[in-house]
Computed example of a mutant assay.
Amino acid sequence: MATEDSRRLSADDRREQILAAASVVFGERGYAGGTTDAIAREAGISQAYVVRMFGSKERLFRATAERAAIKVREAFIRELDALGDGASREDTQRALGGAYAGLMADRGLLLSLLHLFSQGHDETLAPVARGCFLDIYRLVRERGGMSGEQATAFFAQGMLMTVLFAMRMPDAAGDADAQELMACAFGEKRDELIQLGLLHEPLDRAPRS
């Protein structure tokens, strides 16, 4: 949990501080289980400040998920810019896959998106979920030069990686089948991602209401 910072932060810096904390809490506990109180404690600020800045848990959750989608998009754009024109499809997929795997160092980032995608029943959040996903899909199709089938396979592997991380599959690293599954899903990043998963400390079991 973050400690109280005596420096006077700008509104933008404070907003980012809250969203980073919200990513941790929503990533761990989901939309239903995450609370503004838990997020405030993670950020080291008052719950009143969190509510005053975002107004409601729904708006905070939406902002957290949109921040995560933007970070995925920005990571992909950096890789595409670095590759330049004329890169092979294999190099593009390898670069984007590596960028996605690198984002897993911030466990809550991708898991908060995963929780957003599970809110397809919610009239307010469902359009946000579809919009975030399709925005990144279009980037991969248009700038990444992938066909629909190639992009689908790319996203399928990325979602599998996220799901394995969500269920803490690295905790079962001693199981041969788990090792095989993670080797196929994580590729050359397997050992690094298993270590990241094992180092993650779950949030405390404080009351969630």
Rank of each mutant, 00 (worst) to 15 (best):
M1Y: 10
R8M: 13
R8H: 15
L9R: 03
D12R: 14
R14S: 14
R14A: 13
I18H: 01
A21V: 02
V24P: 05
F26C: 03
F26V: 02
F26N: 01
E28T: 01
R29A: 01
Y31D: 10
A32C: 11
T36N: 15
D37G: 11
S46P: 10
V51D: 12
G55N: 08
G55E: 07
G55A: 09
K57V: 08
E58W: 04
E58L: 08
L60T: 04
R62C: 02
R62E: 08
T64P: 01
A68T: 04
A69R: 04
E74C: 09
F76G: 05
I77A: 10
R78N: 06
R78W: 02
L80R: 01
D85V: 10
R89T: 12
R94E: 07
R94G: 08
L96F: 02
G97R: 02
Y100K: 07
L109Y: 07
L109P: 00
L111P: 02
L111T: 03
L114A: 13
L116M: 00
L116P: 00
H121Q: 12
L125M: 06
P127R: 03
L134W: 12
D135E: 11
D135F: 10
L139Q: 05
V140N: 01
G144C: 02
M146H: 00
E149V: 13
E149P: 11
M161N: 09
M167Q: 15
P170R: 00
D175G: 08
D175N: 12
A178H: 04
L181T: 10
M182R: 07
C184I: 14
L193F: 13
L199Q: 14
H200Y: 13
H200I: 05
H200D: 01
A206K: 06
A206I: 06
P207R: 09
R208I: 04
S209H: 12
